[in-house]
Each structure stands twice: as C-alpha cells, then as structure tokens.
Design a protein around this nucleic acid. Structure first.
Lengths: 215, 215
DNA sequence: AATAACCGGGGACGGTCTCCCCGTTTAGCC
DNA sequence: GGCTAAACGGGGAGACCGTCCCCGGTTATT
C-alpha cells in the first residue's frame, strides 16, 4: 500500500458523515432489540427499528457476529463509563455501587448476555479489553465498599453482574419495555440484600467473572 | 357423572397406560426446554428430549398453545404445592417465604414466562384457576410475614414472582443449566433485601400480579 | 453543478418448522 | 398365550421466514 497524499490512516478514503451516523443508529437499535427479543432477531427488524434499509446493515457488518460483538463492546464501554462516573461523583462507596447498578440497568447491560452464547468468539481482542476494564472497575467499587464495612464480603463481581443483567431483562417474549417500571425497585431490593452486616449465610461460593465464560 | 361399571367418566374408552406416561414426559421435557431455550423451541426437539416421536406430541396436543398452556398450569400447580408445603412445615412466616422461593426456583417457575407472550389466551379457565390459587397462597405467606414484622411492607406478590422468575432463568441463549449453582445464592441475597426493617425506600409502587398480564 | 458513494426496497435462495401418512409395535383383554 | 385396536416412530411434503444480492434513486462532498 503506497503512501498517499490524503490523511487517510489506511485505505479509508473517508467515510461519509451520515454513514457513521447510520452505523451508530444500527448499533443502538440492535442493542435494544437484542435485549427485548434475544440474540436471534431478524436483521431486517433491526434495520427497520434503526430507520434504515436492510442493505445498510449488511454493508456495515459482514455477518451477524460482527454486529453482536459491536453491541457487546458498546455496552461494556458504557458500563465502564457509568462505573467511573459513580466512583467520581461520590465519596460513599456503597452509594457509588448503587449508582452504578442503576446506571448499568439503564444502559441495558443485559444486552451482553449473548456473549455467552454458543457461536461467539469469546477471545476477540476488543472483547477481552472491554471485559477486563469492566471487571477492574467493578472490583474497585466493590472492594472499597467492602473495606468500608458497607458491603457484605461474601459476594463477587460475577454475582453482581449476573443479577443486574437478569433483573434488567424484559420478562419474557414480550415486546414492551414496561418492565422498566419495576426494574429499579427490584435492583434496590437486591442492593439492600448486599448491605453489611449480612442477614444470612449464602450457599455456594462468590462468583468470579471468569466462571461466566466457559460452558 | 352417571355410575358405570367401568371407571370411564365420559366417552373416554380408556386411555392407555403408556399414553399418559408419555404425555407426562412430554410436559416435563417441554417445561425444561421452554426454560432453557424460550417458548419457540421446535416441537421436534421437545419430542426428542422426551424420548418419543414427534407424532406423539402432535397427537397429544392439537397445537403449540395447548402444550404451552399445559406446561404453565403444571408449573403453577407445583408452585402452589410448594407454597402449601412451606406454610405447613414451619411456623415462622419468613422461613416459609424462603422455603417457597427456593422451591419455586427448583420447580422452574420461570417457565411460566411465556404466559405473558403475545399469542396466548390469558383467560383460559384452567389458567385463571391456577393463577388465582398461586396469588392467594403467596399473598397468604407474605401477609403473615408482614404481620409478624419480618417482611418489609412495601413489596407485593408481583415483585416476588417477577424476581424469582427472572433470577432462576438461565442467563441467555445457553443450553447448560450450570446457572443452578448461582441461583440460590442470588435468591438469598434478594430475600435478605426483603427483610424488615427496610434498608431503603423503593421507587415505584408495589407490584400486583394483575399488572403482569396486560400489555 | 458534477460526481461518486451511499441508501432503500424488492426478490430469489436456502434452511427450518410444522404437520400428515403409513408400517410397526405394544398394551389391554379374553 | 393369542387377538384387536390403539398408540408409536420415522420420513417426507408444504409453507414460512431469515439472509443476502441487485439496481434505481438520493445525498453529501469539491
């Protein structure tokens, strides 16, 4: 590839403005559709929701997995932002935890469920990077809360992420998002159960994030 | 019911023994498949899991909805049994609540998620009967626990059923039931959050069971 | 205003689920 | 222990749906 006069970093001649805007709209629509209807929704439906033609989807993403991966990474990045914000905005560790949990639910963290799906490359570079960022930040928040004696010590990062993900999912094969009214109630109940001192002994072991990946 | 020499209640000439056994196996297999793979699993897969031919499924149930309805009613009846057992075996109301929650998870109560699905008759007689039984019994347990000052008063039957259902679902499009290791941990955390005195104020209103039915 | 990339709808291909049909097996009864 | 009829299981036709490509029209860039 010979050097060119244009400031193209690679063989990218320049993407058009609305092209990137459409790509972003597709990712957003796909995130919501994955959350509401599972990882097998027709791509045409995603296109319709995004307000673009189906061809635009297939042009931006070579196959379904590419779109899923983009969505998962996007959700993880948003989650990391939420965690950083929660850490920065308050000195109270448990309050930060609460802020993070509610924010993660709003960011549709449950969309990363398909990442444990069958045909999905768990070891894609972008994926492991985002995953480690999430793990590190959540571990930071939970560690501070435990050190402050506000969070019971027998819970792990995996426990938190699983429960938030499960509780923020739409109840079933439903196409309405009316669950949002209840989600924060139930998250708050869960958070109350996380507080120290512990009101019961938990069965099993604290769940690490790595246990969620292997089958 | 006119007295006859044979115990045939109506124009049923007599169902064969293995026929009913197979029917039961189909319902059991369907329950697990609905929980693990959603309400759209191929009926042939259910037949394979039940160890019967696909024709046997279509012979016992005229259409998919009939099978779904049977599964949902079966799960509700099992849940009612679990609730009655929990009430009978202990005098402590909150302990009964805990027993019931864990039992309901083991009974795969999350299989009744498809009852809120799109094409599904919410008003079938068998359905409303089972539903009212569940509601009455859970209300009884929760009422006692509230009266004893063990359960925070700002939660409803719907809150409990939703959370138990959500937390006991397999995480995503996964075909393994390894989630069972975590489920009871997370249910216990939720139960700790239910205890009185409340550790926080909840957003929204207590969820009634009827709010889960209409779209 | 010119140009080239991008967009959007329509349609063919391929796969999958549903459902029926028929030869065989098995339970129930004499 | 043999008979009868109900039930069973496998295979296949029909139909539906998701995926992907192609082409005329549109819009951003110089």
């Amino acid at each position: 590839m010979p050097a060119m006069t244009a400031p193209a970093p690679r063989k990218a001649p320049r993407p058009r403005a609305d092209a990137l805007r459409n790509r972003e709209r597709i990712v957003t629509a796909a995130r919501e559709m994955f959350v509401e209807h599972g990882p097998d929704v027709p791509l045409d439906e995603i296109a319709r929701r995004a307000g673009v033609g189906n061809a635009t989807v297939y042009r931006n993403f070579p196959d379904r997995d590419a779109l899923v991966r983009e969505v998962v990474c996007s959700v993880m990045d948003r989650t990391v932002e939420a965690a950083e914000l929660a850490l920065a905005e308050t000195g109270d560790a448990f309050a930060a935890l609460e802020r993070f949990v509610h924010a993660a639910a709003d960011e549709r963290i449950s969309a990363l469920c398909p990442m444990v799906s069958s045909t999905f490359d768990q070891n894609h570079p972008d994926l492991v990077a985002s995953r480690e960022s999430v793990e590190r930040l959540v571990e930071e928040i939970m560690g501070r809360a435990k050190a402050a004696g506000q969070l019971r010590p027998d819970v792990g990062v995996g426990d938190l992420l699983i429960v938030v993900s499960q509780l923020s999912r739409p109840p079933a094969g439903t196409d309405c998002m009316r669950g949002d009214r209840f989600v924060h109630r139930h998250l708050q109940l869960f958070l109350d159960g996380l507080r120290a001192p512990a009101r019961s002994v938990l069965p099993g072991e604290a769940v690490d994030i790595r246990e969620l990946l292997d089958s």
